[in-house]
């Protein structure tokens, strides 16, 4: 069982570094679940980079934890309060010309992860994703 935490600048150019940090710790997962975790990590980190800070760049703390039956990653930022889980999901039945492409990141995160939790505490946004082994 392992837990590990690192702080990154909230800049989209750092997304590869965040993905390799998490990937290096999640060898207990199947290949497909590692891809799912890569995807969720990219979507959440990039979302924070683009929207959390009025005066970029801020920072994002990324905490990895492995439990008996699951792996979790928690993202904490001290940017604007934002609960991505409270946003309406995009309408997937719309015709192409009416699709905007917005909201897909959080939709995919919810689809590929087993759990996604948002909390606002001590002036920080916390988003935690969990994937079962």
């Amino acid at each position: 069982m392992e837990s590990c935490c690192r702080v990154f600048n909230a800049e989209t150019g750092d997304v590869e570094e965040v993905i390799s940090f998490i990937s290096s710790l999640s060898s207990c997962l199947s290949e497909r679940k590692r891809q799912y975790l890569d995807l969720a990590v990219e979507e959440i980190f990039v979302n924070i980079c683009l929207y959390a800070y009025e005066m970029p760049p801020g920072t994002v703390m990324v905490a990895f934890e492995e439990l008996d039956d699951s792996v979790s990653v928690e993202f904490q930022d001290d940017g604007l309060p934002f609960d991505p889980l409270a946003q309406a999901e995009p309408d997937l039945t719309l015709a192409m010309e009416d699709r905007s492409g917005g909201g897909l990141g959080i939709l995919l995160t919810r689809r590929v992860m087993d759990e996604v939790h948002y909390n606002r505490k001590d002036g920080k946004n916390s988003l935690k994703i969990v994937v079962r082994k």
């Binding site: 891809q35 995807l39 990219e42 979507e43 990039v46 192409m96 492409g101 897909l104 990141g105 939709l107």
Partner: peptide, 12 residues
């Protein structure tokens, strides 16, 4: 091997 929402938006 891999696509994220940014890739989907480009395709759209």
């Amino acid at each position: 091997d891999y696509i994220s929402s940014a890739g989907l938006r480009s395709i759209l």
